[in-house]
Design a protein around this nucleic acid. Structure first.
Lengths: 211, 211
DNA sequence: TTGTATCGAGACTTGTAGTCTCGTCAAGGA
DNA sequence: TCCTTGACGAGACTACAAGTCTCGATACAA
């Protein structure tokens, strides 16, 4: 794992940042315009006015380009609301997740990306870590809620996380049902108990102690 | 849509049922043994001792072969318990769904199949209808529960269905958390209210009337 | 000016789905 | 029995996409 860069500074022509940007832009555009058919490297390079080798000089695989394009525009902003109320935090997180995937022009892009990930090991791995940060944030949010007594001590946080992301991906990929604010609200209430939304209730007071 | 078969009975050699079976068996075996790499038609035909054209004489695409192989061995048996208790019915349905996908040797096969479906329109469509029958059964089960008052009238049945299948597919495909009986139980309780599992409780009595 | 690394361009290799062709084989009809 | 018909195994072939390789041109620094 020697780094030759440390020995000799750099000679020769520098990498072209403009080409880098053009590739990302083309990738994102093609991804957005895709009707489900996979986006090809040839198409990306051609529309970016760039040689294929240039693409592979910056990224190791097609999947890496596509994911980078999407991340680049979506930003790495993970919502992490902290209003003091678990219910409000959760509602905000779910709403932001739903909105984030739908409002941007990247919805079809993200769908295409998932399809590509099914065959691209490199992309699948990168996506997993991308998703993991969001899962971790959500889990922290739930942990706060459990510590404050808004969730019972024996609540299965992983199951709650999976119910949220399960519903999200399931509806996002199949598109058979909406991912709107109403759905976010109902999902929140379903997970925290929908009969007493926001209202304190004796039978549900915080419990300290192992079940 | 004329049926020439009605005019002239049939002449020539008949289709070989043995070849048909051999293809399905080979497909299923390769699917089961697959480590994630896609199963090729060449491999199926070769291990079945059959020409590629014979495969395409029976099925329109690779995906059709794979799905048929899986359906053939899994059977079309959709669990539909009716014990009189929604909670028990739901628990049984979820447990059966979890078990069905995992206990058989078809778990890796099903995972591979989903990956293939990402690129095969024909397969994706067939799979959608396959899944739809299961969704419908689950929805009927929930409707029974709502009619009997075990679910409130304003319960979002579609959301419950999606929570169940969302968690199922999410965990099945990612494999980061178990799909065991404990998980099925917790999911059931989460959806019906986990604080009073099986016990009648005044504050949660069935409510008739729109919210 | 010269050495070096990147550039655009495109030929090339590899792998796979699906088609086409060929000689063979089985089944029914004449 | 022989002939027609259509399925059979085998494999060549086409189409297409990922990724590699090569080439002459170009930009930057010593």
């Amino acid at each position: 794992m020697t780094q030759p860069r440390a020995e000799r500074p750099h000679t020769g022509r520098r990498r072209n940042e403009a080409a880098h940007r053009a590739i990302l832009d083309s990738a994102l555009r093609l991804l957005s315009e895709s009707d489900g058919t996979p986006v090809t490297i040839d198409a990306i390079a051609r529309t970016a006015g760039v040689g294929k080798q240039t693409v592979y000089r910056w990224w190791p695989s097609k999947g890496a380009v596509l994911l980078d394009a999407l991340v680049d525009q979506a930003g790495q902003v993970v919502p992490d609301p902290d209003t003091g109320s678990l219910r409000e935090d959760l509602r905000a997180f779910i709403t932001a997740t739903f909105d984030g995937a739908q409002s941007t022009p990247s919805a079809p892009a993200l769908r295409t990306l998932v399809r590509e990930a099914a065959h691209d090991v490199h992309l699948a791995e990168t996506m997993r870590t991308f998703i993991a940060t969001r899962r971790a944030t959500l889990r922290d949010l739930l942990t706060r809620g459990r510590d404050s007594g808004e969730l019972p001590d024996d609540a299965d946080l992983d199951l709650i996380v999976d119910q949220i992301y399960g519903v999200f991906w399931y509806r996002f990929l199949l598109g058979h049902a909406p991912l709107d604010h109403a759905a976010a609200d109902r999902l929140t209430d379903s997970l925290l108990g929908d009969r007493n939304a926001g209202m304190p209730q004796p039978g549900r007071a915080p419990r300290y102690g192992q079940s």
